[in-house]
Design a binder for these strands. Structure first.
Length: 262
DNA sequence: ATGGCAAATTGAATTTGA
């Protein structure tokens, strides 16, 4: 059988519930990984999603901000949370589904100023990446997918202007290098990059601060789906569902999609 | 260390995002 998986930084599940339902109805994914749910586990709107055929909820939420979840049609055999940087700040949830492992990760944004000495948020982001690299290096991944909002656009073509953004957090040299190191450390395949035609849109995020995002197209590729080597032969297709950015009151991130033989 | 917008929380102003 085939498994359909979506990853999406929804920027508040409660503010975006109608959009979530639309995506679930249209793409009918087996699993959806959300980031920035901005809700505690108690207040997570489970009942409104169950009616669409999603019975299983794996939640790591905190009040007000951050928060990740995996919503599933299929019952997982196990689930877990890793606390990189020991902050209990709702940035990871994973499930084991038969022999497949899925990690949903929300890497810190890192604030404004790209100097870890002056900006604690950037320091946190770099430390989080270092801990991810240690974790990834220490294991041999089989049938594993890691996805989420990584908050880094690793390659020059992953931003609207490499020149203008090379000193902006999400595209600085040190972050890009760490993300590439992370990718190498687990032999991960960046399947969105590998599978999307060069003529198609690569971006997954456009700032709210630009009125006509479609016209100047100042986007970035911050959201990622990576797979372990042994799954490469199983990929059926990938997609960036970018038209959601044109909806009324959208998330600033758009969903990314993979279909995989399972 | 431009300004621009959006959501949550608390109660018009602040924090967070990137």
């Amino acid at each position: 059988m085939a498994l359909k998986i979506i990853s999406w930084n929804i920027n508040s599940i409660r503010a975006r519930l109608s959009h979530l339902k639309k995506i679930l109805r249209t793409y009918n994914p087996d699993l959806i990984c959300l980031q920035e749910t901005k809700v505690t586990n108690e207040k997570f709107p489970k009942e409104k999603i169950k009616s669409l055929g999603y019975e299983f909820f794996y939640l790591n939420g905190i009040p007000s901000y951050n928060g990740v979840s995996i919503i599933s049609k299929i019952k997982a055999d196990n689930s877990g949370i890793i606390e990189w940087c020991q902050n209990n700040d709702g940035r990871h949830i994973s499930i084991l589904l038969r022999n497949l492992t899925l990690h949903n990760i929300y890497i810190p944004a890192g604030g404004e100023l790209p100097d870890p000495k002056l900006n604690q948020k950037f320091k946190h982001k770099l430390k989080f990446l270092d801990e991810l690299i240690s974790w990834s290096t220490s294991k041999t991944f089989k049938k594993t997918i890691i996805c989420g909002d990584f908050n880094i656009a690793p390659f020059p073509e992953d931003v609207w202007s490499h020149k203008q953004l090379k000193n902006t957090i999400s595209h600085t040299e040190i972050e890009r290098q760490k993300l590439i190191d992370l990718q190498k450390s687990g032999f991960w395949s960046d399947i969105i990059k590998e599978r999307i035609k060069s003529t198609d849109n690569l971006f997954t995020w456009w700032s709210y601060r630009s009125k006509n995002f479609k016209i100047n197209n100042r986007g970035r590729r911050l959201d990622h789906i990576w797979i372990s080597e042994d799954l490469k032969k199983n990929i059926i297709g990938v997609k960036i569902i970018d038209y959601t950015r044109e909806w009324e009151k959208p998330s600033d991130h758009v969903p990314i999609f993979v279909e995989i033989k399972f």
